[in-house]
Design a protein around this nucleic acid. Structure first.
Lengths: 201, 201
DNA sequence: TTGTTTATGTTAACAGTGTTAACTAAATTT
DNA sequence: AAATTTAGTTAACACTGTTAACATAAACAA
């Protein structure tokens, strides 16, 4: 049954082509300027064709949102080599922050925009859940080795995530313009160091 | 010159009517569903009339953004009665959090959306700047009275703001759905307590 | 082989969006 | 009285996501 496979592959290929075009436009022109029509234009298909491969625009955003998590997980992979949990936690924060600053659009899709989550509803946000559980596990390890004060790891992990996310979004959404251009970078990196000093035992 | 004043007042009145309609629709239907056309419909003027009173949609959002700050500042006014800076800081966090949860749309406009900042550009974000300086001053006081570790108040204030903002936006943008419905509220309030315990000397 | 169904993609349209140019009518100024 | 300013209008431009109706070609069944 080679014929059926080829057909299947052709479908997959067009789906990927749509996603490639979507990603290009998304990264070039940003979230607001990625439209069904300009994706269709780029791959030279009619706009309605996209609805054969995706339920709606939100599902395309969800696919890109997943790509974002793949990219972040890829960067987090180096953490496997860090044995000490506190060192791992610190490196994790640095990677998270760098990812948010270097890929503001992906970050937005993953942690700010509501659109990509609309196609989840029931099933739950598994990408976010997995990432959070990884952070939580590292926090729990730190508590065992005595580098973090013993407490509910879920709560402390959420405190850490909140701080990191807050810093990144205040920056990405232009709320750090209250600081002078040159002082800005200093405050962001110093804040991270400062936060670490506060939580580390 | 009563006639000129009356004319001037009439202009002001229509401007206020536009803002009233905008606020109503914004709070009823949310950020995405407030359009120039449905504001115009509500006050029974043509859509183009709004452009006599506002440069563009961003300027309307900016006006509502200012209202949001007025509302928040109003709630913060009770802090004047709190003499102890650490108590004041704690109360401030509680008020900030309650504001974000009770007025998610205003909060979004003030701290997440880029649209209202587009009409600022040069002048700078004075509303945000003022609020931050107030936080910073309280942090500095805490350092003087020895309830916070001596450090750069600007940096520590930013650490606190980042944490608060992160918590609020992760919640408002549905990223706390990784926690079970019932555990969610507990984690949010416990995280705040936990953060306070960590920073307080 | 013929006829029917299914899959894939198209065109045209709906109902909306922000924004601008051109115009009218009324009020004010010269 | 004539000219100018002001306030508001209509119509249009260039978009947006999405759907219904239709075409075409391939796959399957009789």
């Amino acid at each position: 049954m080679g014929i059926k496979e080829r057909k299947h592959k052709a479908k997959e290929d067009l789906r990927k082509a749509i996603l490639n075009a979507a990603r290009e436009i998304f990264l070039e022109k940003g979230y607001d300027n990625m439209s069904i029509r300009n994706i269709a234009d780029r791959i030279e298909y009619s706009p309605t064709t996209l609805y054969i491969y995706f339920k709606d625009k939100g599902e395309i955003f969800f696919a890109l949102h997943n790509e974002g998590f793949q990219l972040l997980n890829q960067k987090m992979a180096v953490l496997a080599a860090v044995a000490d949990p506190m060192e791992r936690l610190k490196a994790m924060g640095k990677i998270y922050m760098a990812f948010a600053m270097d890929n503001p659009d992906y970050y937005d899709l993953m942690f700010v925009q509501r659109a990509p989550l609309n196609c989840i509803e029931q099933e739950g946000w598994s990408e976010g859940h997995t990432s959070f559980k990884f952070l939580e596990a590292t926090v729990a390890e730190c508590m065992k080795t005595g580098t973090l004060k013993k407490d509910d790891p879920e709560v402390v992990a959420f405190v850490i995530w909140s701080f990191m996310h807050g810093m990144c979004t205040l920056n990405n959404r232009d709320r750090c313009m209250i600081f002078d251009e040159d002082r800005r970078t200093h405050i962001l990196s110093t804040s991270y160091e400062s936060f670490l000093k506060i939580i580390e035992l």
